[in-house]
Simulated scan of single mutants.
Amino acid sequence: MAQQTQPVESADTDDESALGGVLSGRHRRILSSLARHRGGLVGAATLVAVVFVAVAAPVIAPYDPLEQFVGPALAGPSTAHLLGTDMYGRDVLSRIVFGARNTLLLALIAVGISSVLGTIIGAAAGFYGGWIDEALMRGMDVVFAFPSLILAIVMMATFGINMYNAAFAVAVVFTPQFARVIRSNALSLREEEFIKAARTSGGTRRYILFKHVIPNGISELIVQTTINLASAILIMSGLNFLGLGIQPPKPSWGYMLANGRSYLLQAPWISTFPGVAIMIVVLAANIFGDGLRDALDPRNTERVR
C-alpha cells in the first residue's frame, strides 16, 4: 500500500511544480515584454516618481503650501522659490507637490471604484446574457451617452460639492468603460472549453463567474485602469478648475490653473507649472498603458485556468 501511495504524492508534487513553472514563466514573459517597451518603462518610472513626490510631500515641499507671504507676491522663479510665488505670496512648487497628493488620491479612488463596479456589471452581463445583459448594458449606455465632464458636473450639483463626491462622480463616469471591456471578455470566455468543463463538474454560475470569468479579465482590467487613470486626472482637474472638487485653500492642480488665469501675462508661472504637471502625469499614464497592453497581449501570454 505504501508503494502505491508514493507515486500519487510524487505526481501531485510534480503537478504543483509544473504549475509554478508555468506561472513564473508567464510572469517572466510579461516582464520581458514590458522591459522591451521603452516608452512603457519611461511612463512607469515617471508615475513612480510622481507617487513618491505625493507620498513624501511634507518632506519634499520647501514651504507650507497654505502659508501666505512666504515670499513676495507674484515673484518669478528664483533660488528661494524655484517655481515662483502666486498672488498671495505662496510658494508654487510647494503647492504643486501637495497638489499631486490631492489630485492623485482622488483619481485613484475614482478609478478604483469604477473598476470594481464595471467589472461586476460587465462580467455579469456577458456571462449571464439574456435580460440581465440587456438591462445592465442599456443602463451603461445611458451613462455613456452623457459627456464625461457634464455628467460629473450634474452629479456634483445633485450630491453636493466636496472632494469625495467629486471622486464618486468621476467613478460613475468611467464605470461603463470598464463594464464594456469586461463584458466583451466574458462573452468570449463563456464558450471556452474550461468554462464548459466547470459547468459539467457542477460549478454554480456564481462560482464560475468569480473563479474563472473575472480572473481571466484581469489583463484587460489592468490596462483599462491605467488608461482611465489619465482621463480621471484630467476630469478631476477640470472639476477643480471649476471649483467643484477640492475646495480652497487645499492645493490642487486644477484650482491652481484657475487661480493663475487672471495673471497669465504678469505671472504665467502660476498656471504654467501646474499645467505641465498635469501633462506629464497624463502622458506617462497613457504611455505606460500602451506598454502594459503590449505586455499583457493574450497572444503573448497564456490565460489563467
Results as ranks from 00 to 15, higher is better:
A166P: 09
G160W: 04
P147M: 14
A169Y: 11
P147S: 13
G122C: 02
V172F: 00
A152Q: 04
P176R: 00
A169R: 12
F146Y: 11
I132Q: 03
V143R: 01
I150H: 04
L151I: 08
F168E: 01
L151V: 14
A157E: 13
A167M: 13
A171E: 06
G126P: 01
F174N: 13
I132T: 15
Y128R: 15
F144V: 06
G160T: 03
G139N: 03
L149Q: 01
A171V: 09
L151R: 10
A145I: 03
A169G: 05
A169V: 08
Y128F: 15
A152D: 05
M137F: 03
I153F: 05
G139K: 02
A152H: 07
A135E: 00
L151P: 08
P176W: 00
M156I: 15
N162T: 12
V172Q: 04
T158V: 14
A171I: 11
I132R: 06
G126E: 02
L136C: 03
M137W: 02
M156P: 01
G126N: 01
A169F: 10
A157K: 11
A167T: 12
F174V: 04
T158L: 15
P176D: 10
R138V: 06
M163H: 07
A166V: 14
V170W: 07
P176S: 11
L149S: 03
F174T: 06
M137N: 04
